[in-house]
Structures are given as C-alpha cells and as structure tokens.
C-alpha cells in the first residue's frame, strides 16, 4: 500500500488555485456568492422603492401644477380625501373577498389532489391548474369580457334556460350589480378569482400533502365528527398553505390595474390611480403616495398573519 502525503501539493492551474483559496476562506466564498443578489436587492429593488418613497413626501403646487421638492406630508393628506379613500377601501375589499373566495374554491381541489389523485390523475391536476398560467394574462381577461358581456355566452345560456329573470334580479342588487356582468363588481371579482386561483391551489395542495393521514384517522377514532376533524385538525394544519396562497392572491389583486380596466364599472383601483396620476397629470407625488398604500396594507397583513402564528410551521 503506497503512502499518500498528509498535505497534498497545491493544484496546478488558475482554476485549481482559485478553488484552493475559496476552500480555505469560506467567508470569501460566501461574500462572492452573496454580493450579486444583495446588490440586486439593495440597489435595483430597494433603491427604486426608496426613490418612490421619497417622491411621495414631495407635493404638487396647487396653483401651477409644478412639483415642489420640499418634504411635506400634504400628499399623504390628499390620500384621505373621500374620492381617494374610496379607491383604497374598494381595492382592499376586493382583494379581501377575492382571497376568501379563492381559499374556499381552492380547498376541495387541493384536498382532492393531495389525498386522492394518483398517477396520471395527479399529472392531469397539475396540468389543469397550471395550464391557464401558460396563456397570456391579457388573452384570458379579454376572453372573460366576452363571456360576461351583455350579448355574451353566459347571458345566452341564462336566456336558453329561461333564467334571465334570475340574472336580472342579481344584477339589480346595488353595489355588486350593474347593467351587465361585465360592467359590474361581480364581473371584476369573477375574473380576479379565475386569474389568481392557481396561486392559491398550489401552496394549499403542498400544505395538505404534509398532513399525515394518521392524524385524521386518530381524530375519527377518538370520536370526532368529520366537521370537527376538519376544523380542529385538518384546517389548522393546512393553515400555512392557506396563508401563503392568500399572500399571493391578496397582493396580486391589490396591485392589479389591467383587469378592472377591462372588466368592471370604470371605478378606479389603486393600480389604476397610480397609473393615471403619474401619466399626463404629472402628479408623481400622489402616484407615489398611492403606491405606498399597498406596501403598508401588505405589511399590516403579514404582521397579522405572523401574530396568528401562520409562519410558525414554516
């Protein structure tokens, strides 16, 4: 048996030397690996966010419409004007209801996929959930506009089932109704729900897969009714998935400005308000202040979620 030396000779070549140096100094390796993403996060991501934040502390001159570069809270005061407050409340309510509805719709789908779907059915499930994400977002929204239109497919179905009275009765309800589904909040809600649903189903399915079947069996053995098993065992254990999904659906709805422009009653959402204020109006401070609102709402949302212990299981 040949003896090998305890300390091998340095390797040849530049790559070898580099490899040796990196091996001996782990901090250097860490620094090299972390610097690019940190620069990206720090300069491009947070930098633009802070530039935005700074803009929101300026104000626009009432008389000439010129932006004044003096620090003030006046622009944030403008957010509290009734018309602007409406926009914030409207967007938050929509995001909240879309999230709740998405959780309700997604749960059975995710549960089936996690518990019962096997083999090709599982593949089919993934395909079914992911497929809508492969086509353009705009195509989907325009398709929905046609489905919901007054002379669209859905109305045609209702008419042939002689149920037009039902639809009319629904549309005559104030706030959620309107002249047709495609110009009502209900229409906007349906499209949001459709577009963001995959973002709720997938994390939920992942969480449900991690719940051991034995827990559910134990719960049943100890005499719990199915409803009790659901509320005391299954749902709390699936909560991290629900929270993760709700962060997606809530924040995506909060920031979207295309769907409410194509389907809905033309009443603005936060994203649209930002878009119109920074455009021809040149009121960048107000646009920036509006853009800060979802950041604050999401911060609050995450804080609440943390307090509820949603991240403990992560």
């Amino acid at each position: 048996m040949a003896e090998s030396p305890a300390i091998t000779a340095p390797r040849d070549g530049v790559l070898g030397t580099v490899s040796d140096v990196l091996y001996r100094r782990p901090t250097l390796l860490l620094l090299l690996l972390l610097t690019p993403p940190l620069l990206w996060l720090g300069i491009i991501y947070l930098g633009s966010l802070f530039a935005l934040l700074a803009q929101s502390f300026f104000s626009i001159d009432e008389f000439s419409g010129v932006i004044q570069y003096r620090l003030t809270l006046k622009t944030y005061g403008e957010l509290l004007a009734p018309a602007n407050l409406d926009i914030i409340v409207r967007t938050t309510l929509m995001a909240g209801s879309v999230t709740v509805a998405a959780a309700i719709v997604a749960f059975p789908i995710a549960y089936y996929a996690a518990r019962y779907a096997r083999g090709k059915w599982k593949a089919l499930f993934y395909l079914g959930v992911m497929l809508p994400l492969w086509s353009s977002y705009l195509v989907k929204v325009y398709a929905w506009k046609l489905i919901l239109a007054k002379e669209g497919i859905l109305n045609w179905v209702f008419e042939n089932l002689h149920l037009t009275w039902l639809l009319d009765a629904y549309l005559s309800i104030p706030v959620i109704g309107g002249n047709s589904l495609s110009v009502s909040y209900s229409g906007t809600f349906l499209v949001f729900l459709y577009v963001w649903l995959p973002f709720m189903v997938l994390p939920m399915q992942a969480a449900l897969e991690r719940v051991p079947v034995s827990y559910l069996e134990a719960s049943a053995d100890l005499g719990a009714s199915p409803l009790q098993t659901f509320s005391k065992v299954l749902f709390p254990l699936a909560m991290p998935g629900v929270i993760a999904g709700s962060i997606f659906t809530f924040s995506l709805t909060l920031g979207d400005y295309i769907i409410p422009q194509i389907v809905g009653s033309s009443r603005l959402f936060i994203g649209q308000a930002v878009y119109s204020h920074q455009g021809t109006a040149g009121n960048i401070p107000l646009a920036a202040a509006f853009a800060v609102v979802p950041v604050i709402i999401m911060g609050f949302y995450l804080w609440m979620a943390k307090r509820q212990g949603a991240f403990d299981a992560l």
Binding site: P82, D86, L268, H277, A281, L286
Partner: peptide, 12 residues
C-alpha cells in the same frame, strides 16, 4: 392635475 383627481372622483 385637478381635472385628473376630480374626474377619478366622478367616475368613483
């Protein structure tokens, strides 16, 4: 710019 903010209010 007032036209912008007020028209948003009207539509809302």
């Amino acid at each position: 710019y007032r036209w912008v903010s007020d028209y948003i209010g009207v539509i809302g």
